[in-house]
């Protein structure tokens, strides 16, 4: 990972599920079936959320988050996917794209380009939500 690029985990965890699955489908098409080995999952489980509070900067356990985890091997390359909620498809998609990105193949560059595009969509969507929120910006005045 030599040049400045988007973090594929962040993008795939938060983008439209269909887009994540499309990327994964491309990865699957480029690899024969026997190159894919699911090591574990899709497995539902919990991640304990650790929060660093702002008073003493100490940590506490703020409750658990439901997640789905997939571990696989694609042509000998380990791929990891963990996403929020019960979401087998997205977890699998993250793991597949993760493995493909870590291998240097013609597909890698294409995936990076696609991820950058999807990230752009995600950022635009966030900006559009914030635009609505920002309309409630308030200036209180004391009288």
């Amino acid at each position: 990972m030599d040049h400045q690029e988007v973090n594929h985990y962040s993008v795939l965890a938060n983008c439209d599920e269909g887009l994540a699955c499309q990327l994964a489908a491309e990865v699957l098409e480029a690899h024969p079936n026997d190159q894919l080995h699911i090591l574990s999952g899709p497995l539902q489980g919990l991640v304990m959320l650790r929060v660093k509070e702002s008073v003493e900067e100490s940590q506490f356990n703020a409750g658990e988050v439901l997640v789905t985890e997939v571990k696989l091997e694609l042509d000998g390359q380990f791929g990891y996917g963990m996403v929020l909620g019960k979401n087998d498809r997205r977890a699998m998609a993250v793991a597949l794209v993760d493995a493909a990105l870590r291998k240097n193949s013609p597909l890698t560059e294409h995936l990076k380009t696609e991820l950058a595009r999807i990230n752009q969509l995600l950022q635009t969507e966030r900006q559009r939500l914030y635009q609505l929120v920002n309309s409630t910006r308030v200036e209180f005045e004391t009288i």
């Binding site: 497995l43 489980g45 919990l46 991640v47 304990m48 959320l49 650790r50 929060v51 660093k52 940590q59 658990e64 988050v65 997640v67 985890e69 963990m82």
Partner: peptide, 8 residues
């Protein structure tokens, strides 16, 4: 429980 999150 699969993991603990990084402190957020």
């Amino acid at each position: 429980r699969l993991s603990y999150s990084l402190p957020t």
